Computed example of a mutant assay.
Amino acid sequence: MRTLSPLKTVLLTLLVVMALAITWRAVGEYRLIERMWFNWQVFWQSSDAQALGLDDYEVVIEARAIEGLADNVSALSFDPDRKTLFTVTNKDPELVELSLEGHILRRIPLTGFGDAEAVEYISPGIYVISDEYQQRLIKVHVDDDTLFLDSADAEQLTLGMGAGGNSGFEGLAYDNRGKRLFVAKERKPVQILEVRGFPNLDASAPSPLEVTSSKRRDAGLFVRDLSSLQFDERSGHLLALSDESRQILELDTEGRPVGNVSLSKGSMGLSKSVPQAEGIAMGDDETLYLVSEPNLFYVFKKQ
């Protein structure tokens, strides 16, 4: 039996160690085990559970630059009353109203909002904006006459969840029937919180504050980060957007995975991959709207 020379033994050992290191990094960083489990659950779900049918969407507006915004576009929310979209910028922070074609309708300067990363429509004229660094949720009122917003004048909720900085609150979604606000924690760990009692919409009857999470649901999120959320009132399903994994995930009412779609080139008719998806919103007719840094606008419709 031939034996390897000492040099070959060392080289073989190094190759094995490198292979193990690469595999370990892939399993940890790209969450391969979670992804395999997610796909396994999706495979065994009834097709009826996939209420939104993400695979049926095709891009109709792709990577349209939002003229007037150079960069740092983050988050997206559909206003069913105004039939417009709202986004925020986190450098020289502003609340920006967009048409459904991605054109700027107005810009509202934000004072004292820190790193504004998400905005969510709650009810007519009422929105919540998140401050990622300080992990604050800030309730604001906006009407046709609003010229600026100052956080000092607003109702606020601070949630210290361990990791600050760029690992804070990246996405918001609101369940109007259940009166709960979903909050996406970007990473360390990837997590979806449910907040009840904020924002308070009836000053005469305040609701007790309750913050919960689902370990089962969070464990099934194979994505490397969360950048935005969207709640669908019709099905009760939640969409979770990940920019680093270039994925949109669909979770049912129990938090179980029932579908996903890629934001990479070739998927949904995309000619190029979405570079850095930061916000997702759904219109009354189930049209999906998406923004990507630096200032790109997308529209997807069911075909």
Rank of each mutant, 00 (worst) to 15 (best):
N176Q: 11
N176P: 00
N176D: 07
N176A: 12
R177E: 14
R177D: 14
R177W: 01
R177L: 10
R177M: 04
G178C: 04
G178P: 01
G178T: 04
G178Q: 12
K179W: 00
K179S: 10
K179Q: 15
K179I: 00
K179C: 00
K179E: 14
K179M: 07
R180F: 00
R180N: 04
R180M: 10
R180Y: 01
L181Q: 11
L181Y: 07
L181N: 11
L181T: 10
L181P: 06
F182Q: 09
F182H: 12
F182A: 07
F182G: 04
F182K: 09
F182C: 06
V183P: 03
V183S: 07
V183N: 06
V183M: 08
V183W: 05
V183H: 07
V183C: 04
A184N: 09
A184W: 03
A184M: 06
A184K: 08
A184D: 08
K185M: 05
K185R: 15
E186D: 12
E186A: 13
E186I: 05
E186K: 11
E186L: 03
E186H: 06
R187V: 05
R187G: 01
R187H: 08
K188M: 11
K188W: 02
K188S: 13
K188C: 00
K188L: 08
K188G: 05
K188N: 14
P189Q: 04
P189F: 01
P189I: 02
P189T: 06
V190I: 06
V190S: 01
Q191N: 08
Q191D: 02
Q191H: 05
I192E: 02
I192C: 04
L193M: 12
L193R: 08
L193F: 12
L193E: 03
L193K: 04
L193T: 05
E194Y: 01
E194P: 00
V195T: 10
V195N: 11
V195L: 06
V195K: 11
V195R: 10
R196G: 05
G197R: 12
G197C: 10
G197Y: 10
G197P: 07
G197V: 10
F198T: 13
F198D: 13
P199D: 14
P199S: 14
P199R: 14
P199K: 15
P199I: 12
N200A: 13
N200F: 00
L201Q: 13
L201R: 13
L201K: 13
L201S: 10
L201P: 07
D202V: 10
D202Q: 13
D202N: 15
D202G: 06
D202Y: 09
A203M: 09
A203E: 15
A203D: 15
A203I: 09
S204H: 12
S204K: 15
A205L: 08
